[in-house]
């Protein structure tokens, strides 16, 4: 070909220059491959062994998964995750949407109010847990306050009541995260083309009607991403439970994350801990993948 007539080699500088982007991205990719994907496989491997205090690498089949699902504490953790997860998501969505819609009504001091609703997001779950642990204190906290207001029969002992302890996690968790959902929805509301709302007004629709049939349905993508994020927070929830109830009383407010920590690190059951970690990964995948997939498909089909 004619290019043979031209100098086929490139200058060294140009070669380096061309490789630079890949070189720069390299370490991150390597880190991701090893410390994310590699470690997932590693944990997966451990979950098929009889590792206890020290990791062992002879495969032993599904023993850990079998003992996991024969473990009452794991079932409590799973049930709690279902209860906590669904309530947490529902409350956050409802409160977040309410606040966003209210704030969207040309409110004075909107900025200040928004900041107030959102500041819990800046706190550590440990701080949140500590604060709510005090507020929900069965003798000195909310219970005493209401009793002093004249309702002397009032009891509020959820924090130490094994049947109710998981709901305290919902209360504290929703307090921390609903402001964030508000911010998402508010951004979504601000992104709606105002001429659509004007057109509906011209058509004679009332404001509540406009919200119900036009505005909120058009927030569908926001709902989806909010649900994905909230589900993700719920499944990973660890710090809040540790600070608020420590998983107790007993193990009544355990979640998979605290279960994994207890068995993997404090009770020297590495194999079981690995199995529970893998189950958490599968749960996240089971929730996130279908939601993301449906969203992507919807976007593609316009």
């Amino acid at each position: 070909m004619s290019s043979a007539a031209s100098p086929a080699f490139k200058r060294l500088g140009d070669v380096v220059e061309q490789a630079l982007p890949k070189l720069v991205l390299g370490p991150t990719l390597l880190a991701s491959l090893v410390f994310v994907y590699g470690f997932i496989l590693w944990t997966g491997w451990l979950s098929f062994t009889e590792s206890r205090m020290l990791p062992r690498y002879e495969l032993a089949g599904l023993v850990q998964y079998i003992s996991l699902f024969q473990n009452d504490r794991w079932w409590v953790a799973l049930t709690n995750l279902a209860v906590f997860g669904s309530l947490f998501i529902l409350v956050c969505l409802a409160v977040g949407l309410l606040m966003a819609v209210l704030l969207d009504q040309r409110i004075r001091a909107e900025g200040a109010l928004r900041s107030i609703y959102l500041y819990p997001m800046a706190l550590s779950f440990i701080v949140t847990g500590t604060a709510w642990k005090w507020i929900l204190n069965p003798s000195l906290g909310l219970e005493r306050l209401v009793q002093q207001m004249g309702f002397t029969d009032f009891t509020f002992d959820w924090l130490v009541n094994p049947d109710m302890s998981i709901y305290t996690v919902v209360i504290a968790g929703a307090w921390q995260s609903s402001g964030f959902v508000m911010a998402l929805f508010l951004a979504g509301l601000r992104g709606i083309d105002e001429s659509i709302i004007k057109a509906a007004q011209v058509d004679g629709a009332s404001m509540p009607r406009i919200y119900l049939s036009i505005v909120i349905p058009s927030l569908r993508p926001v709902f989806l991403s909010a649900i994905i994020i909230l589900a993700h927070i719920a499944i990973k929830s660890f710090d809040l439970v540790m600070a608020l109830t420590g998983g107790g009383p007993g193990f009544s407010s355990d979640l998979p994350a605290t279960f994994m920590y207890a068995f993997g690190f404090t009770r020297n059951q590495i194999g079981l801990g690995a199995a529970s970690a893998m189950m958490m990964l599968f749960t996240v995948a089971a929730v996130v993948v279908p939601l993301m997939y449906s969203e992507l498909r919807r976007q593609r089909h316009g």
Partner: peptide, 30 residues
């Protein structure tokens, strides 16, 4: 400086945002 496959690498990287960190704790401790 996108190159062939860079979008795929980005997606691969982003999955790292989603994993529950419990799944890397034991290997990382070691």
């Amino acid at each position: 400086w996108r190159f062939r496959g860079s979008d795929l690498l980005f997606t691969l990287l982003m999955i790292g945002c989603f994993i529950p960190f419990q799944v890397v704790l034991l290997p990382m401790a070691q």
